[in-house]
């Protein structure tokens, strides 16, 4: 996995609560058996005026100029400001794949759906939770200032505004280590293969019918 240490990135505001994973990457793109290439279809139904299907030439499609990510001031944004319960709905990992492929490396919001939150960490995308009043203020400042950027320092667990104001965020210690180092979790788990084997053997002895 790609490591995440620090980021100084342009911020884009997506001012909606309960953004579900089907809005992030609509179902028709889930037919792909690849892990990459989802970026052009991130938020497809909001971003384009026509209906998107896999295999279309996205560069020729009509953009919805009202959609926030289509405003030129947000081109190249790496941090997405979000609202409550971002990433709810389907467990599709294509959602963080699409965010990542588009260029987002971090999300800042008040809350995320569990499975989505988890999936982000597996893909080097950092979902940050800050208090609602701070997120409100970041939205306001972002909208008022073109070219608005934020710094994120994962080791220090801080989001830093341009005037130096720092906001602490919580992150699970293990997930933080994995992200900072870009560790492969499967490799980490397999270091405990003997313990897994021993557990399995005793469970099988006790409950053989789970193992047919």
């Amino acid at each position: 996995m790609r490591a995440f240490t620090t980021l100084d990135g342009l911020v884009a505001p997506l001012d909606r609560a309960n953004v579900d994973t089907d809005a992030i990457i609509p179902k028709q793109f889930l037919k792909s058996i690849q892990r990459s290439g989802f970026g052009p279809n991130l938020f497809d139904e909001w971003r384009y005026l026509d209906h998107g299907e896999p295999g279309m030439d996205n560069s020729t499609r009509k953009l919805n100029t009202n959609f926030v990510l289509n405003q030129s001031r947000y081109t190249g944004a790496q941090i997405l400001l979000t609202r409550d319960n971002f990433g709810c709905g389907s467990s599709r990992e294509h959602a963080p794949w699409a965010l990542d492929d588009y260029g987002f490396r971090a999300l800042i919001g008040t809350s995320y759906a569990d499975i989505f939150f988890n999936n982000c960490f597996k893909n080097g995308v950092l979902p940050i939770c800050l208090p609602a009043d701070v997120v409100d203020r970041l939205f306001a400042t972002c909208l008022a200032n073109e070219g608005y950027r934020l710094k994120i320092d994962l080791a220090a667990q801080q989001v830093i505004e341009s005037d130096g104001t720092a906001h602490h965020f919580d992150v699970d210690a293990f997930r933080k280590e994995c992200l900072l180092n870009g560790w492969d979790e499967i490799g980490l788990t397999l270091r405990h293969a003997d313990e897994i084997r021993a557990f399995e053997a005793s469970r099988k002895a006790e409950h053989p019918y789970y193992f047919r």
Partner: peptide
């Protein structure tokens, strides 16, 4: 429910973190 990375993790290790 789990994501695809976790599907791979379960396939490879029979465990989840």
């Amino acid at each position: 429910g789990i994501g695809t990375s976790e599907v791979e993790h379960v396939l490879a290790t029979q465990c989840l973190m």
